[in-house]
Amino acid sequence: MSYAYLFKYIIIGDTGVGKSCLLLQFTDKRFQPVHDLTIGVEFGARMITIDGKQIKLQIWDTAGQESFRSITRSYYRGAAGALLVYDITRRDTFTHLTTWLEDARQHSNSNMVIMLIGNKTDLESRRDVKKEEGEAFAREHGLIFMETSAKTAANVEEAFINTAKEIYEKIQEGVFDINNEANGIKIGPQHSPSSPHAPSGSLGQQAGGGCC
C-alpha cells in the first residue's frame, strides 16, 4: 500500500473514556458497546487522503490506567499527533487532562499536534463537562478541540483527519522536519501522489484494523 506520508498518532487519556472505541470507529467504522480492555498498547492503522496525498495513520492506543503509564510513555516519542481524550460525562477525566498533557509534552517531540477530544456526546443528558470548558482548556494550552461520539461516529473522522491536516500544514510550513522520523512522520516508500488507487474526493479511507 503506497502512501505519501505516514503519521504516527497516539491516543491517551483516562481509562474508560473511549479511546479504543474512537480508534475502532475510525479504523473499522463500527462501534462496540463492549470493547475489551486495552492492556498495554494496541494499534490500528488507516489510510486517509489529504490534499490529494495518501496518508497512512498509524495509531497507538494506550491503556489508561496509571500503572501502565511508564510503559506507554515509550510510545509518545515518535508520534506526530496525539489525541487527548476525556469523557464529557466524567469530570475527573477532564481534571486529569493537565497531567496527561504534561506527560505528553514531556515525552514527545515539541511539534506534536495535540487534539483534545471530549468523547461520548451521545450521552448528552449525563454531560458533566461543558463544551465551553473543553474549548477554554484547549485555548489555554494551544490544542485543537473537538467533541466526538465514538458511538454515533459524530466528529470521529474529523478528529483524526483534522489532526492530520494540522500536521500536514506543519510539514508544508517546514515546521516538521520530515527527514527526521523521530517527528512521527515518515515519507512513504513509493511516494506517488497521483496513485490510481487514491479514492476520489478529498478524503477517503482504505483498510484498517492494523492490517495495512
Partner: peptide
C-alpha cells in the same frame, strides 16, 4: 527508525505484543 542522534524512537518491536 533512529533519529538523527542515533537514539531509538521506535520502542522495541516485540514489546506491544509481549506486554499484553
Amino acid at each position: 527508525a533512529k533519529d538523527s542522534n542515533g537514539s531509538h524512537y521506535e520502542p522495541p518491536l516485540t514489546n506491544v505484543f509481549t506486554m499484553q
